[in-house]
Design a protein around this nucleic acid. Structure first.
Length: 157
DNA sequence: GCCAACGTTGGC
DNA sequence: GCCAACGTTGGC
């Protein structure tokens, strides 16, 4: 089992939007970066825990917990000419972009970016690395434990 | 709106 | 394969 952090713009899909979805599940559509795509395809397993991170918004930070709910499969938006994520070079026979489904687990208090940066225990967290632009990053088990227990006050994982 | 950082594209 | 130009991310 591996742990992940996935960024979403709350104007698009917030943690509350995720919770309100049928089954609490949403396809993680719109990833157009090969590294992030490959993580979904090669490294994620159904059941992996995910920090749901709000980005490009007034209060960026971790807003809740989700889990990986499917294997990677072709992202439908790449075939949709009306979608901002349309890719003319992708066809159903040779899809370029994949997504997993992500399922709501719980909403937490917002752990803001500044708060994350202030933790010595999180100094090496991938998402905090200088210049990081990946929308999906791995979280080390010790970092996951620290955030869930010390910052969120959760008893269990 | 600004800007740093970095990925992608395309000419050569 | 190099690399400049361009586009995107995302915090501030």
């Amino acid at each position: 089992m591996r742990y992940w952090l996935m960024k979403s713009e709350p104007d698009d899909v917030s943690i509350d939007d995720l919770a309100a979805r049928p089954g609490g599940t949403v396809p993680w559509y719109g990833v157009r970066n090969y590294q992030a795509r490959n993580l979904m395809r090669d490294a994620m397993t159904v059941g992996d825990p995910v920090f749901f991170y709000h980005s490009s918004c007034a209060e960026p930070g971790i807003a809740g917990i989700a889990r990986v709910a499917s294997a990677a499969y072709p992202d439908a938006t790449q075939f949709d000419a009306t979608s901002p994520y349309y890719d003319a070079k992708a066809t159903p026979e040779t899809p370029r972009w994949l997504n997993v489904d992500v399922q709501f687990v719980r909403k937490t208090r917002l752990i803001g970016l500044a708060e994350l940066r202030a933790q010595a225990e999180l100094a090496n967290m991938r998402v905090l690395a200088r210049g990081n632009r990946l929308s999906i990053t791995e979280v080390e088990p010790a970092e996951w434990r620290y955030i869930t227990r010390e910052l969120m006050g959760l008893r269990e994982d």
